[in-house]
């Protein structure tokens, strides 16, 4: 290694600001939450050290198992709902026709609305007596328009609202990735006699593999943050039918003011998040720091 090459390598100092910043506002707070999880604190006065009482209370919390299960279910359903939709629409919208470009502008609109706006809009739309739910409910298995209030449907309705918000973004990912697929591939396939559906499975899908991974990662990473949407639509109800783990933690802390116990839940949430990150990193190979090409 020449000195010149060495000098051109950026030192740790380039990464230091980001690292320090993240340590102060990302890692330090996690330490704080761990501390609070061993205290009793209602937000007033000073936190009181109570040892592992909050942690043993986790086992006796009737909502804990359910809320973890609902979190996983919501993540899986969201992925199953959004990925095929976004993939197919993205591929279709990548077509050359002008009208498709106009239409894809329309597809993009939901992304411009904030989650708060979308939540308020759907609460209104899904009003069983005066919203669209009243008119279209019977085609969707709820003749009385009871969607958000039906314990068996509410979580799926939430998943659909989330899909409404995020499918456009993923559609865009697929649309732009599809445009990058060289035409020569399709021409070669056409010569071999492969058409329509076979081309899709033989060329388009494999070519989009990396995009599928990238889009899935974003969905997974986002899945723990959906709670705002639920908070503003059902607040976890009816009963606890849509109470996912992040919301459970939030309600314990900010509705019931059991900050100590909420912190124990928060630590659990951080652990789940970290675990998820590890899985994602393993699956995608994001942990490789340099390009494959560099080694060659």
């Amino acid at each position: 290694m020449t000195t010149a090459a060495h000098r051109a390598r950026p030192g740790f100092v380039w990464a230091a600001p980001a690292v320090l910043y993240f340590a102060a506002l990302g890692i330090l707070p996690v330490g704080g939450v761990v501390y609070l999880s061993f205290t009793r604190w209602n937000g007033l006065g000073d936190p009181q050290w109570i040892g592992t009482a909050n942690w043993s209370a986790l086992a006796g919390d009737p909502e804990i198992g359910g809320s973890i299960g609902r979190t996983v279910l919501l993540t899986v359903v969201s992925w199953l709902l959004q990925t095929p939709l976004a993939l197919l629409i993205g591929v279709w919208a990548a077509g050359p026709q002008r009208n498709r470009a106009v239409l894809s502008t329309l597809f993009f609109l939901p992304l411009l609305l904030s989650s708060a706006a979308i939540a308020l809009m759907f609460v209104s739309l899904l009003d069983p007596n005066f919203g669209l739910a009243a008119d279209f409910g019977r085609y969707l298995g709820a003749p009385d328009g009871n969607f958000l209030g039906d314990p068996d449907k509410a979580l799926y309705v939430i998943a659909s609202v989330i899909a409404w918000q995020f499918v456009p973004f993923h559609t865009l990912l697929y649309q732009s990735a599809t445009r990058q697929i060289p035409a020569s591939l399709y021409e070669a396939a056409a010569i071999d006699g492969a058409t329509g559906v076979r081309q899709f499975f033989a060329i388009t899908l494999p070519q989009l593999r990396n995009t599928i991974v990238a889009s899935s990662v974003l969905m997974l990473v986002g899945s723990l943050t959906y709670f705002e949407m639920i908070l503003l639509t059902t607040k976890g109800g009816p009963g606890t039918s849509t109470r996912v783990l992040p919301l459970h933690m939030y309600l314990k802390g900010f509705d019931g003011f059991e900050m100590g116990y909420a912190s124990a839940l928060a630590v659990l949430l951080v652990l789940v998040g970290t675990l998820l990150s590890v899985v994602v990193v393993r699956l995608t190979g994001y942990h490789r720091m340099a390009s494959d090409r560099e080694g060659a």
């Binding site: 609460v123 069983p128 009871n146 969607f147 958000l148 209030g149 314990p151």
Partner: peptide, 10 residues
């Protein structure tokens, strides 16, 4: 049958 979907705020 659908009271659980009804919201007071809207």
């Amino acid at each position: 049958s659908n009271y659980a979907s009804v919201n007071y705020d809207n």
